[in-house]
Write a protein that binds this DNA or RNA. Structure first.
Lengths: 231, 231
DNA sequence: GGATTGAACGAACAGTGTTCGTCTACGGCA
DNA sequence: TGCCGTAGACGAACACTGTTCGTTCAATCC
């Protein structure tokens, strides 16, 4: 005697796209760590076991969400300037796309294989570098370096904007002053003894201050300058 | 009537140092994700609840292990050359120290606050940059950039050497060909259609090949070149 | 010797990823 | 129209996870 007959809901049928989209939406609001197979399955109105029809495991699902996050990144065109301007634009778009989805960049740094959209961006990255007259070996390593830069910058920017988000709620829900990374880091620096950490103390306002976009643009410029200096 | 009287073992008493050391050792052999409070507690011969006397939560424990990983990094001296040589040496030592402990660099990228040893390295990093005549604002952002570089390079190198480790066992325990990141990535690149990804295909041997240390040194040189080009 | 206190711990809670075997609804075929 | 095969969906379970609560112990202080 089964508990109750399996009533197939008249809702939209399950699909990989719907699952991945739901996963990314959950990442947006909860962060990667808090996204569980159960929560995803609830979001698409089914049970956890059903997800495994479409996805081998949680890691693969996160990788798909990661790839979806950069799906809308448009490749620069000739109208956007020379190879360097286009390269900077492409990288900036990738960072922005990733940072718009919370934690998701962590997936790219834990050894997930690149999906089709990331490959598309990588291909264009390499093409632009090569068209800039950089040697093949340097192109390969530069792409690696820029990939590292994109992921870590996206993460940093995401934390910065997460801090801003939690600051805009002026104490509504949380009396416990849920101050996010930037604030805690600044407080830590300020609490350091000046005799042991003189340089950190001297530069504290500069270390945590500054607009995220400006920092990112500066870092990327440094990186490309370095590439050109070596060529 | 308690089940059995609490027999305090005559072993070494619990201590924070022992717990953190055990944690780092477990990270070394299992990776960060697989290190649980229960496994750590087993390693120090106690129960999971006992750890919370010394540590507020798992994240803090991992942060302590992360800091311990760079505890032995020695700061370069005047005998090591000018500021640039010393900077490169310091960064290299930090990367090597982190990469020697598997995954642990991930902790530094998920928003953990820096511990004392990381602060010590950061202080010296800033000092060296400043002594190189770089402006204060550039020093602050450069330290950030170099920090990102250290973490991501350590992660990459750790995966590279994990691949090597699993390759050195010539099929002993695993018939399922547990080929790690580098190999899978290379296979992926080789399987791409050449008409859609011509540049990736053209550069495939260069993308996955190369010695880890050489790559790291090259990338760091590019970075510092870029810093100097902007000054 | 008795009270105090911090450390250690057993048990439990709510939640996790994943697997197994069952069931059901829909496709094609007669 | 009736049937069946199969791919998809799912309930239940397993072996875990991080963390908390309340209790018990051993050592210290008065």
């Amino acid at each position: 005697m089964p508990a109750r007959p399996r009533t197939r809901s008249a809702k939209t049928t399950l699909s990989l796209d719907a699952i991945v989209a739901a996963t990314l939406a959950l990442v947006d609001e909860l962060g990667c760590e808090a996204v569980s197979m159960r929560r995803v399955s609830q979001a698409v109105q089914t049970g956890p076991a059903s997800l495994y029809v479409y996805v081998p495991d949680r890691g693969a699902l996160m990788a798909l969400a990661h790839d979806l996050a950069v799906a809308d990144v448009r490749l620069p065109t000739e109208a956007d300037g020379d190879w360097r301007a286009r390269l900077e634009l492409l990288v900036d778009r990738a960072v922005t796309a990733l940072a718009a989805h919370n934690d998701i960049a962590t997936v790219g740094m834990t050894g997930a294989l690149p999906g089709p959209h990331i490959l598309r961006i990588t291909e264009e990255l390499l093409r632009l570098l090569r068209s800039g007259g950089i040697s093949d070996a340097a192109c390969a390593w530069a792409a690696d370096l820029i990939g590292q830069y994109i992921a870590s910058s996206a993460l940093e920017e995401a934390m910065w904007s997460r801090a801003r988000r939690s600051q805009e709620r002026p104490g509504g829900s949380s009396a416990e002053a849920e101050e996010a990374f930037a604030g805690r880091l600044d407080a830590l620096y300020r609490s350091l003894p000046a005799e042991r950490y003189p340089t950190i103390r001297a530069l504290t306002p500069l270390l945590t201050g500054g607009d995220g976009a400006t920092r990112a643009a500066w870092k990327l410029r440094v990186l490309i300058d370095g590439l050109l200096a070596g060529a």
